[in-house]
Amino acid sequence: MLSVAHQVFLAVAANLSFSKAAQVLFITQPAVSKHVKVLEDQYKVPLFERKGASISLTQAGQMLYNHLVKASEIQRKIEYDLSTLSNVSHASGHLRLGASTTIALYILPSILSNFQREFTSVAVQLVNRNSEYILNALLSHEVDLGIIEVENKLTTVSYQHFMSDEVIPVCSSKSPLAGKELSIKQLTQTPLALRERGSGTLDALLKALSEHGVKSSDLNIKIRLGGTEALKNFLRADQCLGFMPKPSIIRELAEGELVEVPVKGLHIKRDFFFIRRKGTDDDGLTSNFIQFAMRDL
């Protein structure tokens, strides 16, 4: 088992911040500093280089971090594998899951609820960010399993298809756009509210528009908002057109708060994939969750 000091070091190294590590671990910053000092005394080398308010890993610190990441993964596998020897329902462990906004807010809640009812000893940590962030979190070992939209596949990541959805153009029912059908040319002249860069929803839109010869610079973008809920609430109050994942606005469409504004010839479909670091495909806990989620979808 990793010592408390090693777990604290991992948190500091992942965040490159003593204060952020303290927040993540729910301990005081002096306690974080004390644990790191214990390791530096134990190994007789500095693990962090202090540069004013920022810190970075020393060569020794980076070496220790690389070893501890591997040790942490082995520890997690041991806990899960031994707990499931007699019965998979006895599984225990810690599932670090990352998902893009649409999946995290509108698809996963019921799946996670059912999963935890069946596997009561598995602790789940869910990170909800855009697709770019989740991919980077996977590669930096902050999460062990991600669910994101995928445009370009990396050789260091393995992919398994999860589900598809549709992104549709919508506006407030009070907008002058309500009840209209637009051409691609009219779309480029229409005030738009869009997601932030790095968003899978935005990437899907731009990919679909590129097939019609339209670039981001051709669009009349009035505002960019971070997150699906922020964009949805803005569209409810404004007259702009926006592009929303259909699962995120089922209620608003049914109640007439938002209405679809068809754009001739524009169809936006997204595919979501489970992503894992290459070489971790045999991980029992993430494989178990993938199988459960596919059945429960």
Rank of each mutant, 00 (worst) to 15 (best):
G93H: 06
L85I: 08
Y106Q: 04
H90Q: 09
L95S: 04
A104P: 13
V88R: 11
T101R: 15
E79C: 01
A71V: 12
E79S: 04
I78E: 11
D81P: 00
S100A: 10
A104I: 06
A71N: 11
V88W: 04
D81V: 07
Y106S: 08
R96D: 00
S100C: 15
K70Q: 14
Y80V: 05
A71H: 14
H94R: 11
L68H: 13
T101C: 13
L68K: 06
A104S: 14
N87R: 09
L68D: 08
A71L: 15
S83N: 02
Y106T: 08
S100L: 04
R96L: 06
L97I: 04
R76P: 00
Y106E: 08
D81K: 08
I74A: 10
S89C: 00
L105Q: 14
K70N: 12
L85H: 03
I78F: 03
S83I: 02
I74S: 09
G98N: 07
I103S: 03
K77P: 00
D81Q: 09
Y80P: 03
S89M: 06
S72P: 06
T84D: 00
Q75I: 00
K77G: 01
S100N: 12
S83C: 02
G98V: 11
K77R: 13
S83W: 05
H90S: 12
L85E: 12
S89L: 12
S86K: 11
H94A: 01
L97W: 14
G93I: 07
L105K: 14
L95G: 06
L82S: 05
V69N: 13
G98F: 14
S89A: 07
S72M: 09
R76I: 01
Y106D: 05
R76S: 10
T101P: 09
A91E: 03
I78A: 03
E73H: 15
R76W: 01
A99T: 05
T84C: 07
L68R: 11
N87P: 02
T101H: 15
D81S: 10
S72V: 01
A71C: 09
L82D: 09
E79V: 03
I74K: 09
L85S: 03
R76V: 00
S100E: 10
V88M: 07
G98P: 12
L105N: 13
I103V: 14
V88N: 08
G98H: 09
T84I: 14
T101Y: 15
A91N: 04
H67G: 03
S83K: 04
H94C: 04
T84V: 13
N87T: 03
H94F: 15
S83F: 08
I74V: 10
H94Q: 08
G98Q: 10
H67Y: 12
K70A: 06
S92L: 02
S92T: 06
Q75D: 10
S100Y: 15
Q75R: 03
A99E: 03
V88L: 09
R96E: 02
L68W: 15
G98W: 14
H67Q: 13
H90N: 14
E73Y: 14
S86T: 07
H67W: 15
Q75V: 01
E73N: 11
I103N: 09
S100V: 10
